[in-house]
Protein backbone atom coordinates (compact mmCIF):
# COMPACT_ATOMS: atom_id res chain seq x y z
CA UNK A 1 0.00 0.00 0.00
CA UNK A 2 1.49 3.35 -1.08
CA UNK A 3 1.49 6.07 1.56
CA UNK A 4 0.07 9.44 0.49
CA UNK A 5 3.46 11.13 0.82
CA UNK A 6 5.11 8.49 -1.36
CA UNK A 7 2.44 8.88 -4.07
CA UNK A 8 2.63 12.65 -3.89
CA UNK A 9 6.41 12.71 -4.22
CA UNK A 10 6.28 10.20 -7.03
CA UNK A 11 3.79 12.35 -8.94
CA UNK A 12 6.15 15.30 -8.78
CA UNK A 13 9.12 13.11 -9.77
CA UNK A 14 7.34 11.43 -12.68
CA UNK A 15 6.18 14.78 -14.09
CA UNK A 16 9.74 16.04 -14.03
CA UNK A 17 11.33 12.94 -15.54
CA UNK A 18 8.80 12.40 -18.31
CA UNK A 19 8.92 16.06 -19.38
CA UNK A 20 12.73 16.07 -19.11
CA UNK A 21 12.82 12.97 -21.29
CA UNK A 22 10.60 14.59 -23.92
CA UNK A 23 12.81 17.70 -23.99
CA UNK A 24 15.93 15.57 -24.25
CA UNK A 25 14.58 14.11 -27.50
CA UNK A 26 15.39 17.47 -29.13
CA UNK A 27 19.10 17.29 -28.38
CA UNK A 28 20.96 17.65 -31.68
CA UNK A 29 17.77 18.44 -33.61
CA UNK A 30 16.79 21.92 -32.38
CA UNK A 31 15.68 24.70 -34.74
CA UNK A 32 18.91 26.63 -34.03
CA UNK A 33 22.03 25.90 -32.05
CA UNK A 34 21.23 28.32 -29.21
CA UNK A 35 17.81 26.73 -28.74
CA UNK A 36 19.25 23.23 -28.89
CA UNK A 37 21.37 24.20 -25.86
CA UNK A 38 18.44 25.84 -24.07
CA UNK A 39 16.17 22.80 -24.48
CA UNK A 40 18.96 20.56 -23.15
CA UNK A 41 19.39 22.92 -20.18
CA UNK A 42 15.74 22.66 -19.27
CA UNK A 43 15.81 18.87 -19.73
CA UNK A 44 18.81 18.67 -17.39
CA UNK A 45 17.02 20.75 -14.75
CA UNK A 46 13.98 18.48 -14.87
CA UNK A 47 16.00 15.26 -14.78
CA UNK A 48 17.89 16.69 -11.81
CA UNK A 49 14.62 17.50 -10.02
CA UNK A 50 13.36 13.98 -10.75
CA UNK A 51 16.50 12.41 -9.30
CA UNK A 52 16.15 14.29 -6.02
CA UNK A 53 12.45 13.52 -5.81
CA UNK A 54 12.89 9.79 -6.57
CA UNK A 55 15.59 9.49 -3.95
CA UNK A 56 13.25 11.12 -1.46
CA UNK A 57 10.33 8.87 -2.54
CA UNK A 58 12.53 5.81 -2.06
CA UNK A 59 13.45 6.96 1.44
CA UNK A 60 9.79 7.63 2.32
CA UNK A 61 8.83 4.17 1.10
CA UNK A 62 11.64 2.57 3.09
CA UNK A 63 11.97 -0.54 0.94
CA UNK A 64 15.41 0.30 -0.36
CA UNK A 65 14.29 1.36 -3.83
CA UNK A 66 16.78 3.73 -5.49
CA UNK A 67 16.08 6.54 -7.97
CA UNK A 68 16.88 4.12 -10.79
CA UNK A 69 14.64 1.35 -9.40
CA UNK A 70 11.78 3.81 -9.46
CA UNK A 71 12.55 5.19 -12.91
CA UNK A 72 13.53 2.01 -14.69
CA UNK A 73 11.52 -0.80 -13.16
CA UNK A 74 7.93 0.40 -13.09
CA UNK A 75 5.37 -0.28 -15.82
CA UNK A 76 2.79 2.27 -17.04
CA UNK A 77 0.05 1.73 -14.40
CA UNK A 78 2.56 2.61 -11.66
CA UNK A 79 3.53 5.94 -13.25
CA UNK A 80 1.90 8.97 -11.65
CA UNK A 81 2.67 11.81 -14.07
CA UNK A 82 0.00 14.02 -15.60
CA UNK A 83 -0.91 13.24 -19.22
CA UNK A 84 0.31 16.65 -20.42
CA UNK A 85 3.99 15.71 -20.05
CA UNK A 86 3.80 12.37 -21.85
CA UNK A 87 2.38 13.80 -25.10
CA UNK A 88 4.94 13.22 -27.89
CA UNK A 89 7.26 16.19 -28.41
CA UNK A 90 5.48 17.47 -31.54
CA UNK A 91 6.93 20.47 -33.36
CA UNK A 92 8.78 23.32 -31.68
CA UNK A 93 5.52 25.25 -31.09
CA UNK A 94 4.06 22.27 -29.25
CA UNK A 95 7.19 21.68 -27.17
CA UNK A 96 7.66 25.29 -26.14
CA UNK A 97 3.97 25.90 -25.43
CA UNK A 98 3.79 22.80 -23.25
CA UNK A 99 6.89 24.01 -21.41
CA UNK A 100 5.22 27.35 -20.86
CA UNK A 101 1.95 25.83 -19.57
CA UNK A 102 3.90 23.56 -17.21
CA UNK A 103 6.34 26.20 -15.97
CA UNK A 104 3.55 28.76 -15.46
CA UNK A 105 2.07 26.26 -13.01
CA UNK A 106 5.21 24.77 -11.44
CA UNK A 107 6.97 28.07 -10.76
CA UNK A 108 4.36 29.35 -8.26
CA UNK A 109 3.84 25.76 -7.09
CA UNK A 110 7.47 25.33 -6.06
CA UNK A 111 7.42 28.80 -4.45
CA UNK A 112 4.77 27.47 -2.07
CA UNK A 113 6.24 23.99 -1.74
CA UNK A 114 9.45 25.63 -0.50
CA UNK A 115 7.49 26.25 2.74
CA UNK A 116 6.41 22.59 3.04
CA UNK A 117 6.62 20.94 6.45
CA UNK A 118 8.47 18.12 4.72
CA UNK A 119 11.99 19.55 4.85
CA UNK A 120 13.34 17.55 1.94
CA UNK A 121 10.48 18.56 -0.34
CA UNK A 122 10.95 22.16 0.79
CA UNK A 123 14.67 22.03 -0.05
CA UNK A 124 14.07 20.45 -3.47
CA UNK A 125 11.39 23.06 -4.19
CA UNK A 126 13.65 25.93 -3.15
CA UNK A 127 16.24 24.80 -5.68
CA UNK A 128 13.72 23.99 -8.40
CA UNK A 129 11.89 27.31 -8.19
CA UNK A 130 14.94 29.09 -9.63
CA UNK A 131 15.05 26.64 -12.50
CA UNK A 132 11.36 27.02 -13.24
CA UNK A 133 11.71 30.81 -13.27
CA UNK A 134 14.12 30.41 -16.17
CA UNK A 135 11.89 27.85 -17.95
CA UNK A 136 8.96 30.20 -17.59
CA UNK A 137 10.81 33.24 -18.89
CA UNK A 138 12.39 31.37 -21.77
CA UNK A 139 9.23 29.58 -22.91
CA UNK A 140 7.04 32.70 -22.49
CA UNK A 141 9.42 34.68 -24.72
CA UNK A 142 9.09 32.02 -27.39
CA UNK A 143 5.30 31.83 -27.11
CA UNK A 144 5.22 35.59 -27.75
CA UNK A 145 7.69 35.36 -30.64
CA UNK A 146 5.75 32.56 -32.31
CA UNK A 147 2.33 34.08 -31.70
CA UNK A 148 3.39 37.51 -32.96
CA UNK A 149 5.85 36.23 -35.57
CA UNK A 150 4.77 34.94 -38.97
CA UNK A 151 1.44 33.55 -40.17
CA UNK A 152 2.88 30.06 -40.06
CA UNK A 153 4.25 30.35 -36.53
CA UNK A 154 0.95 31.77 -35.25
CA UNK A 155 -1.01 28.96 -36.91
CA UNK A 156 1.29 26.30 -35.46
CA UNK A 157 1.04 27.82 -32.00
CA UNK A 158 -2.75 27.92 -32.20
CA UNK A 159 -2.84 24.29 -33.30
CA UNK A 160 -0.56 23.33 -30.39
CA UNK A 161 -2.79 25.19 -27.95
CA UNK A 162 -5.86 23.31 -29.18
CA UNK A 163 -3.98 20.04 -28.68
CA UNK A 164 -2.62 20.92 -25.24
CA UNK A 165 -5.33 22.89 -23.50
CA UNK A 166 -7.49 19.86 -22.52
CA UNK A 167 -4.46 18.48 -20.67
CA UNK A 168 -4.03 21.50 -18.39
CA UNK A 169 -6.95 20.68 -16.08
CA UNK A 170 -5.15 17.72 -14.53
CA UNK A 171 -2.56 20.03 -12.97
CA UNK A 172 -5.28 21.43 -10.70
CA UNK A 173 -6.83 18.14 -9.58
CA UNK A 174 -6.80 17.24 -5.91
CA UNK A 175 -7.73 13.78 -4.65
CA UNK A 176 -8.00 12.33 -1.16
CA UNK A 177 -4.29 11.46 -1.20
CA UNK A 178 -3.37 15.09 -1.58
CA UNK A 179 -6.16 16.62 0.47
CA UNK A 180 -4.77 15.21 3.71
CA UNK A 181 -1.24 16.32 2.84
CA UNK A 182 -2.45 19.83 1.98
CA UNK A 183 -4.18 20.06 5.34
CA UNK A 184 -1.02 18.88 7.07
CA UNK A 185 1.00 21.67 5.42
CA UNK A 186 3.10 19.24 3.39
CA UNK A 187 1.56 19.49 -0.08
CA UNK A 188 0.52 22.57 -2.02
CA UNK A 189 -3.12 23.24 -2.79
CA UNK A 190 -3.24 23.80 -6.56
CA UNK A 191 -6.33 25.99 -6.10
CA UNK A 192 -3.97 28.52 -4.54
CA UNK A 193 -1.87 28.48 -7.71
CA UNK A 194 -4.81 29.30 -9.96
CA UNK A 195 -4.72 33.12 -9.75
CA UNK A 196 -0.98 33.27 -10.55
CA UNK A 197 -1.38 30.77 -13.36
CA UNK A 198 -4.33 32.63 -14.86
CA UNK A 199 -2.49 35.93 -14.70
CA UNK A 200 0.60 34.51 -16.43
CA UNK A 201 -1.42 32.77 -19.12
CA UNK A 202 -3.55 35.84 -19.82
CA UNK A 203 -0.60 38.20 -19.93
CA UNK A 204 1.54 36.04 -22.23
CA UNK A 205 -1.34 35.01 -24.48
CA UNK A 206 -2.25 38.68 -24.78
CA UNK A 207 1.25 39.53 -26.01
CA UNK A 208 1.20 36.48 -28.26
CA UNK A 209 -2.17 37.48 -29.78
CA UNK A 210 -3.42 34.05 -28.79
CA UNK A 211 -7.04 33.52 -27.70
CA UNK A 212 -7.38 31.56 -24.47
CA UNK A 213 -9.60 28.52 -25.02
CA UNK A 214 -12.60 27.99 -22.80
CA UNK A 215 -12.09 25.63 -19.89
CA UNK A 216 -14.35 22.89 -21.19
CA UNK A 217 -13.90 19.17 -20.80
CA UNK A 218 -10.47 18.17 -19.52
CA UNK A 219 -8.41 14.99 -19.90
CA UNK A 220 -7.59 13.11 -16.70
CA UNK A 221 -6.09 9.87 -15.41
CA UNK A 222 -2.30 10.05 -15.40
CA UNK A 223 -2.00 10.76 -11.69
CA UNK A 224 -3.96 7.56 -11.01
CA UNK A 225 -1.88 5.51 -13.45
CA UNK A 226 -4.31 5.67 -16.38
CA UNK A 227 -2.09 6.72 -19.24
CA UNK A 228 -2.20 7.43 -22.96
CA UNK A 229 -0.69 5.12 -25.57
CA UNK A 230 2.46 7.21 -25.60
CA UNK A 231 3.92 6.50 -22.17
CA UNK A 232 4.61 2.84 -22.95
CA UNK A 233 6.77 3.80 -25.92
CA UNK A 234 8.65 6.33 -23.83
CA UNK A 235 9.31 3.66 -21.19
CA UNK A 236 10.43 1.22 -23.89
CA UNK A 237 13.25 3.61 -24.71
CA UNK A 238 13.95 4.73 -21.17
CA UNK A 239 14.05 1.24 -19.66
CA UNK A 240 15.57 -0.73 -22.56
CA UNK A 241 18.96 -1.55 -21.02
CA UNK A 242 17.70 -2.12 -17.49
CA UNK A 243 15.04 -4.52 -18.78
CA UNK A 244 17.34 -6.34 -21.21
CA UNK A 245 20.16 -6.86 -18.69
CA UNK A 246 18.38 -7.28 -15.35
CA UNK A 247 20.46 -6.54 -12.29
CA UNK A 248 23.48 -5.15 -14.15
CA UNK A 249 25.39 -2.14 -12.82
CA UNK A 250 25.91 0.70 -15.28
Amino acid sequence: METPLFTYTLRLADNALVLGHRLSEWCGHGPMLEEDLALANMALDLIGQARNLYTHAGAIEGKGRSEDDLAYLRDCPDWRNILLVERPRGDFAFTILRQFLYAAFMHPYFERLAASKDETLAAIAAKSVKEMAYHLRHSAEWVIRLGDGTGESAARLKEALEDLWPFTGEMFEVDAVERALIEAGIAVDPAAIRPAWDATIDHVFGEALLARPRDGWMQTGGRRGEHSEHLGHLLTDLQFLQRTYPGATW
Binding site: L44, D68, L238
Partner: peptide, 24 residues
Protein backbone atom coordinates in the same frame (compact mmCIF):
# COMPACT_ATOMS: atom_id res chain seq x y z
CA UNK B 1 22.35 11.75 -29.07
CA UNK B 2 21.22 8.31 -30.22
CA UNK B 3 21.50 7.05 -26.61
CA UNK B 4 20.18 9.97 -24.55
CA UNK B 5 16.67 8.54 -24.26
CA UNK B 6 18.04 5.04 -23.60
CA UNK B 7 20.85 5.73 -21.11
CA UNK B 8 20.82 3.00 -18.45
CA UNK B 9 20.57 5.17 -15.32
CA UNK B 10 19.44 8.68 -14.48
CA UNK B 11 23.00 9.67 -13.63
CA UNK B 12 24.26 8.42 -17.02
CA UNK B 13 21.34 10.08 -18.78
CA UNK B 14 22.08 13.46 -17.24
CA UNK B 15 25.84 13.11 -17.89
CA UNK B 16 25.32 12.10 -21.52
CA UNK B 17 22.84 14.89 -22.17
CA UNK B 18 25.22 17.41 -20.59
CA UNK B 19 28.06 16.05 -22.69
CA UNK B 20 26.19 16.29 -25.98
CA UNK B 21 25.09 19.77 -24.97
CA UNK B 22 28.76 20.69 -24.38
CA UNK B 23 29.48 19.63 -27.94
CA UNK B 24 26.78 21.99 -29.18
Amino acid sequence: GNWITRAPSLKRKAALLAKVQDEG
